[in-house]
Each structure stands twice: as C-alpha cells, then as structure tokens.
Design a protein around this nucleic acid. Sequence first.
DNA 1: ATCTAACCGCAGGATATCCTTCACTTATTC
DNA 2: GAATAAGTGAAGGATATCCTGCGGTTAGAT
Lengths: 231, 231
Amino acid sequence: MTPAAPSDGTGPQLRADAARNRARILAAARAAFRERGTAAPLDEIARRAGVNIATLYRRFPDGEALIRQVVIDGYTVLLRAAQTAVREASDGALPAIEHWLLGLVAEREMLVLPLIGGPVVNDAEALAIQRELGGLLDELLATARDQGAIRPDVTAADLTTTVALACRPLPHLDAATGQVLAERHVRVFLDGLRPGPDPISPLPSGPTLDEVLARVYADGPTPTPDNTTQR
Amino acid sequence: MTPAAPSDGTGPQLRADAARNRARILAAARAAFRERGTAAPLDEIARRAGVNIATLYRRFPDGEALIRQVVIDGYTVLLRAAQTAVREASDGALPAIEHWLLGLVAEREMLVLPLIGGPVVNDAEALAIQRELGGLLDELLATARDQGAIRPDVTAADLTTTVALACRPLPHLDAATGQVLAERHVRVFLDGLRPGPDPISPLPSGPTLDEVLARVYADGPTPTPDNTTQR
DNA sequence: ATCTAACCGCAGGATATCCTTCACTTATTC
DNA sequence: GAATAAGTGAAGGATATCCTGCGGTTAGAT
C-alpha cells in the first residue's frame, strides 16, 4: 500500500515511475517477508521487484524503514476493515463480523508483520492505529452482544488473536492453498462464535486487548519473532 | 534420536552429561526458533543452553541437523497425541478431539518447525510420520462422524491446519499470554465443530490432507517460510 | 523539447554468522 | 581410581548481507 498517493505524512509526491517502483518494492517485501521472514535479503527483494538495489535504498533509507512501512500498511488494512465492519454492524453484527474476518483472510497477503511479528513495534503511528482498532472492535462486539448475536465471553483480544493466527502464511504451502484452508478454519471459528445453548467449552479468562497491547509495547519478556527466516 | 534414551535409530547411547546437554540444546533451539526463526544464530542457541558452541557442533554436525531434530521431535509429539486421541475416541469422539487439540496447544512449545515451516521437508522420516498422522486423524474423524458428534464437512486437513495455526507463537507476546489466547481461540473453534442445526457458514471445498501433503512435498511453488527471523 | 529526478550497474568496506580445529580440562563410567 | 568420552575456550577463514558511493542512462514533468 502506499503508492504514490499521500498515505502517511511521508512523501512530497513521487514521480510516476518512483511511485510504481515503490509499490513494487513493498509488494516484493511483503512476499519475501512472508516466505523468509524480515531477514530476507534486500537484494532479493529488489530483484523480485524488478528494481535495482540502489533504487530500493533510494526509496527506503535502510531495511528497517522498509519493514516499518510494510507494518504500517498492514495496520491500515486492518483499520479500514474494522471501520467498515462497525458501519455494517447495525444491519446485523454477526454477518458484519463474518464479512470482516473473511475479508481479512482474503487480504492476508497484505497482513504481514503486525501478525507475523517484527522488530518495529515501538512506533507511535502503529500504536495509535492499534488503539483505534481496539476501540472499533469493542464497539463491534458491544453491538453484537446487544443483538444477542454472539456469545458474551468473546473479547476484542479474541478477534485480533484470530486474525493473527488465521492470516499468517501456512508453512510450505502456496498462497492459494493456504488461503482455502485458512478460510475453512475461520468459518468453523465463526460458527463457534454463536451464542449456542450449550457451549462445549466455557472460555478460560484471558487478558483484555489493552493488557495484551501493554505487554507488547512494554517490551514483553519474550524478544519477539517476526515471521520466519528460512535458512 | 533425542535425549539419551533410544528414540530413533540414531545413537549408540550417550553419556549422562552428553544427553543432558543435548536436551538443553534442543530446548534452547526450540525457543530460539520460535522467537527468531531457524536463522537464529547457533552461538546464541549454545549460549542459551549454557553450553559451548563446540559442544553444539559435536552433538549436531551442522545447523541443519539441529533443525531436523527439532522438527522430528515436534512430529513425534503430534503422533503420540493422535494415537491417544484415537484410543479415547470410542468413549466419545468429540471430547477426544477436544482433549487432543487443547493438549497440543498446551504443548505448543514443542511444536516448532512442522508448523512454523522450515527447510527440512524432504525427509523420509518426517514424511512417514505425517502420513501415519493423517491416517489417525481420518480414523478419529470417521469415529466422530459415526457418533454424529461432529459436522460432516470437517476434514483431517482442517484439523492439521488448526494445529498449525493455533500452536504457532503469537508475535511480541510472552509464551504464557500466547498460550491463553490460543486456548481461547481453539475453544471457540471446537464449539464450531459441532453439528449445529443451522451452520452459519457452509465450508467451501478444500484440498484433502493427502493433496496438501503432496503439494508440500512435491516442492510446492512457494519456497516456504519457517518461522521468522528477527532482524 | 528540455531539464532533472529517478534508475541502473557495479564496486567495495564493514559486520555477522557459520563452521572448523586444537590443546586443555572436567565429568562419567567401569 | 583409571580410562576416556565429553566439554571448554579461543582463534580464524569463508561466506553473505548490509549499506554507501559514483558515473552514466532513462523516463517523467513542464
């Protein structure tokens, strides 16, 4: 994401070819990060993008800046999807959640680092987006509960967890196959969201999304993986 | 191969301290791979294991051998769990599946590379285990369907997908928090497995487990990530 | 049509990791 | 308690990646 158009406060307007290449680089980076982790060689990303390595460094000062942009773009996708879901929720919250979750699975190629991990966490912009996202999901869930459309013990943290789990690449599988399997999984999960008369499994208590975010950004004990580095 | 005990056909019996260190190295490798991907520096693994790098290289000829062992150990856990589940299924297949899945989530620290990915795929031993695993899951599902305990459109591929998704580390989170969130997710999924009268989401057709395995081992188009390499 | 931003190809130094090797010390086993 | 497998510490060459810089070429903007 983030073609030539002004998406963040970054650019003073790029020339057409520069914007094109920037988009290509980001797409290549997403693919490479999904396949090989953030340690994917920048040379390879440039090659995949059909661009010279010098061009990559002209666009992004260093590897970290590239990672950061991919992360931000992913968050932006998440944010937009949540906004749409909240808008749709009044006409039926459960279908809205369904639409939201399946839509994210369909867009999973865009969702790389927020889910997969990555070093760029202490980022003000990312944090702001994530907080807003949490608010939207709470709103969505509140609406669903009011409508009696969902089991009451599901939290926003559960929704983000599901996105994080279901939108990651499945190892060794091509994107299409992973997509189908992820969608099937999510559909079963969605069925489990309904306020059944006799839930098999009462959910054990878990942290709220705020608590989760606090642990993440408070430099949690675990260093943090990102995706994967193929050896 | 693994601890001191005879697990596979590998060792001529290790001395006590050697076995201890070997186990420590494998535990450290699992942790490092989960956090940083298979590209985690071997020096770091040795350090975490409280062992000299030379000892690591004495035990494992190279990094790939270490990865391979971690993979095999993970598959072994999967296999044992499936065997237990099949044994329990006659007394109620759905509780058996529940027990199986939650047990794997609890043991997720052991399940590193089969799920996360990793370069060691074309391995006869791993392939054999995976096939056996598929057979056991089919058996489990057949029993569950006979008992009318599960929706009929769920396949063995769905079960392995769920394990693969739910047992991976959640980025930026410590193990305990990730564990809780994964368990909650799995419990909702389990509720979605029941043969409800009105499933929200009919599952779209997907590949069988055999087809999935074939794609994986037939050198699927996508190179394959493993876990993640932190930068 | 012209001007200039952006791209390309390439070379090179810095750093990190891999893996090996060797002499010496420690811990286990019998 | 003696024999020996195993572990330690350290040094070093090989490789890969990061990132920078420069002259020359191409493509977009006005």
